[in-house]
């Protein structure tokens, strides 16, 4: 009897917590389909006009293109660098590994606002502010730890004798890397790449500092949108961001199951 009651309380609490976590999503999705000219809750009517508006106004769809471009290049760069770092770390002795790992994980620990403020002045001098390369560089710093963590997790549990086995069976070091090391690390690399993409795609703090009229990302556009317009177009943009994130997370779980 007590056990049943306890289970009931636990289920209830868990349900409330889930509701709390999903609340922003539950609010933003209906708002984006409102017929009104401003954000209201509960929304009135049902229309896709704010999605149409999003894809008609260049400052909005342009920012989506910029964001996608920055996120894609950041993902490529961070995945390449991060995987190489993880491979190197896996071959270090345990203590050296811990010490060096700490450095590569710093961008995750240091408050983002500090990274942003620190980057601003050198970027300004180098003419990188309000440019796509500037955003890519800044986001690569932030995305790198996620790749290092994910690839390291696989690299450190991998039996490196496999590489020796491949060599003994006739593979040169390069072939052994391509045919054995890379495929074995692939799930970790894929997971790292997905997190790197998401890190860049919805990053706002550093982007606020580094972007400008030349290159504005979607989150930055949304931030100014909500400050100056309060139009439901922001809600539509939020939903688009959400859909991309969910799709990528679904991909991650799918890859993980394989």
């Amino acid at each position: 009897m007590t056990k049943g009651l306890g289970n009931g309380i636990l289920s209830g609490a868990t349900g409330l917590l889930c509701l709390f976590l999903i609340m922003p999503t539950l609010i933003v999705a209906p708002i984006s389909f409102t017929q009104t000219d401003f954000i209201t809750f509960p929304p009135r009517g049902f229309s896709g006009r704010w999605y149409e508006a999003f894809f008609e106004r260049p400052e909005w769809y342009g920012s989506l293109i910029t964001s996608t471009m920055v996120a894609v290049v950041t993902t490529l760069l961070a995945t390449l660098l991060g995987s190489m770092i993880a491979l190197g770390l896996a071959r270090l002795p345990r203590r050296a590994n811990r010490l060096v790992s700490f450095f590569f994980l710093l961008p995750m620990i240091v408050p983002t606002i500090i990274t942003a403020a620190a980057l601003y002045s050198p970027f300004a001098k180098l003419g990188l502010v309000a440019t796509v390369p500037g955003l890519v560089l800044a986001h690569t710093i932030l995305a790198l730890p996620f790749v290092v963590i994910n690839v390291s997790a696989v690299a450190q549990s991998m039996d490196w004798r496999m590489v020796n086995a491949a060599r003994s069976l006739g593979a040169t070091p390069l072939v052994a890397f391509l045919r054995v090391t890379l495929p074995v690390l692939a799930p970790g690399i894929a997971a790292g790449a997905i997190f790197a993409f998401l890190t860049s795609f919805d990053e706002v703090v550093v982007a606020l500092f580094v972007s400008g009229s030349g290159a504005t990302t979607l989150p930055v556009q949304m931030w100014s949108g909500i400050r100056f317009e309060i139009s439901p177009i922001v809600a539509a943009a939020s939903c688009l961001l959400l859909v991309v994130s969910c799709l990528l997370l679904a991909l991650f779980w799918f890859l993980k199951r394989k």
Binding site: R161, M162, A186
Partner: peptide, 30 residues
């Protein structure tokens, strides 16, 4: 000579099989 040029069969501790390949492809590797 590097290991790949020695043409010796090696069975490693814990086998060092390739987890991403099936039995056939593991054996087909050499």
């Amino acid at each position: 000579l590097p290991p790949e040029k020695r043409d010796l069969g090696v069975v490693f501790q814990n086998y060092a099989l390739f987890p991403h390949l099936n039995v056939f492809e593991n054996v087909a590797f050499p």
